[in-house]
Amino acid sequence: MTATITIDTLDGSGRFSAYIAKPQTEAKAAIVVIQEIFGVNAGIRRKCDTLAEAGYLAIAPDLFWRLEPGIELDPDIESEFKQALGYLGTFDQDSGIADIEATIRTARSHVDGGKVGVVGYCLGGRLAFMTAARTDADASVGYYGVSIDGLLGEKHAIANPVLLHIPEEDHFVDKAAQAAIHAGLDDHPKVTLYDYPGVDHGFATEFGTRRSDAAATLADERTAVFFAEHLA
């Protein structure tokens, strides 16, 4: 079952929408799906639907609501890609984390106080790392998170397991940044890193030209195992 719900901000100053997908049986846990810069579009909704098919309650909050509610963009359309970059430039990430925390609380209430994980893509991959450091999420996964090398000062605050998927040919995260991420996190007891040779940013998108089926399938299988272990 899928629906759109409304979530109150932590400070009570506003409300934002979120896409929710529920499994046919009782959810074994909840997962917050964190959008790319393209909004809660068809691909993000499909991520939620797939998680629901696997037995999780999945919620994708509209994190760009303060800029414009209901943004849905297609990265394969050049004008919409540029529009998305513009939203990225004005998006307040701290407010986004607060909205993710509000979503985690909502998700937890839907599973009777049970475990809640997060998974994010692109900007969402960065926000997943920030969420791991700043909230009580039980497990966090980031796909091709941007500028994580600039967040390494927060790694000491990570208390629960984190999994990061790193495409080696990511044109938004160069080799130096990837090396810094490994240097900063390889020995972290809560963090697991996987590299994907020969693939670029966006390789696990559900639709469009960025997808690499082989790498996406492998990454998604690793994510499934990770969540099965840490959200049980």
Rank of each mutant, 00 (worst) to 15 (best):
M1K: 08
M1D: 05
T9E: 12
L10S: 09
D11H: 04
G14D: 15
G14H: 11
G14A: 15
F16N: 06
F16I: 10
K22D: 00
T25E: 02
E26K: 14
K28D: 05
K28Q: 12
I31R: 08
V32N: 10
Q35F: 01
Q35N: 04
E36M: 02
I37T: 07
I37Q: 00
I37A: 09
F38L: 12
G39T: 02
G43E: 13
I44E: 12
I44D: 12
K47S: 05
T50V: 06
Y56L: 00
Y56T: 00
L57F: 07
A58N: 10
I59F: 13
A60R: 06
P61F: 07
L63C: 03
L63D: 01
F64D: 06
F64S: 09
F64C: 03
F64E: 04
W65M: 01
L67K: 03
L73I: 08
D74M: 05
P75S: 03
P75R: 05
I77Y: 07
E78F: 02
F81S: 06
A84E: 02
G86R: 07
G89C: 09
T90R: 15
Q93K: 15
D94A: 14
G96C: 09
G96R: 13
A98H: 08
A98Y: 03
D99P: 08
D99V: 03
D99M: 11
A102R: 06
R105H: 05
T106N: 05
A107Y: 05
A107S: 07
H110V: 04
G113Y: 00
G114K: 08
G120P: 07
C122T: 02
C122W: 12
L127V: 07
L127Y: 02
L127Q: 14
L127E: 14
M130K: 10
T131A: 15
A132G: 03
A133I: 15
T135H: 11
A137G: 06
A139H: 04
V146T: 12
S147G: 04
D149N: 13
G153Q: 11
K155A: 15
I158W: 11
I158F: 09
A159K: 15
N160C: 06
N160L: 02
V162T: 03
L163Y: 09
E168K: 06
E168T: 13
D170M: 03
D170I: 05
F172V: 02
F172W: 09
K175L: 11
A176Q: 10
I181T: 09
G184C: 07
L185K: 08
D186Y: 01
D187V: 08
P189G: 08
K190N: 14
K190R: 13
V191H: 04
T192G: 05
T192S: 12
T192D: 01
L193W: 02
Y194W: 04
Y196K: 10
V199T: 06
V199F: 08
D200Y: 01
D200T: 03
H201K: 01
H201I: 03
G202F: 00
F203W: 11
T205C: 02
G208R: 00
S212C: 14
D213F: 13
D213H: 15
A214T: 15
D220S: 12
D220G: 08
E221L: 13
R222I: 05
A224S: 14
F226A: 13
F227T: 04
A228W: 09
E229Q: 14
H230G: 01
L231P: 12
